[in-house]
Design a protein around this nucleic acid. Sequence first.
DNA 1: CCAACATATTGATGAATGTCAATATGAAAT
DNA 2: ATTTCATATTGACATTCATCAATATGTTGG
Lengths: 118, 118
Amino acid sequence: MTEHEEIVLFSKALQDENRLQILEMLQSGEKCACKLLENLCIEQSTLSHHMKILCKCGLVHWKKVGKWMHYSINNEGTKRAMILFQKLTHVLNPLQPTSSPTKSFTTCGCEKQERPLL
Amino acid sequence: MTEHEEIVLFSKALQDENRLQILEMLQSGEKCACKLLENLCIEQSTLSHHMKILCKCGLVHWKKVGKWMHYSINNEGTKRAMILFQKLTHVLNPLQPTSSPTKSFTTCGCEKQERPLL
DNA sequence: CCAACATATTGATGAATGTCAATATGAAAT
DNA sequence: ATTTCATATTGACATTCATCAATATGTTGG
């Protein structure tokens, strides 16, 4: 899986309000599905679907205890997501647009970009 | 806008492979739409659509220069996304499941959770 | 074994999303 | 003014997604 594909997985997991509420509930520690369900306005099958998405991307850890499923935030996963996002958006030694005249362009100017003298 | 709604906006922006490629291109500095388009396998109207999404959520900054539109990564936006994600997933003083017997449950055990003695 | 309970899976449905072609807008050059 | 070029908007279409009801799986207790 490429890094972009990983970011896409994480992002899809975080784009739903119910899943964000689930993550927030897990901040205070491990919870079973029934407890999560109590605090959400969705059906059981929908919760199961959300948990699958949260687990599959690595943000949430799961553990079967008897007939209950216990979920908790997976710190490895959240760290990984953070690192990938940082890597994607951190601007490093950016090319600067040359201070062009304010009038009369014939090109967009991207070709004229130059590295700053560090 | 709630913090969750902000996270949803950021996440939706990051869930598309083409938009991730665009962000990666912007890492090396400001680019005009035409340069971005050269390196993507999408039509111009689709690029315009993607840029709207990236700008609207705050991850990308835009600047009109003559007839060209110049885009760059908005560090305020990326910082904000990072902070919100960290806030959402950071486990603070979590409740611990009590070390329960391995057999014979009648409840999921969530009620028995207790704070660790710090 | 059987009943009760917790969770997962399946199938259907409506809403959201990415894409393109066509068209519109807006700015610079002639 | 008119043409040309860069970008934005619109409308249509296929795909993906969240949701629920119904059903299946799997575990515990009787």
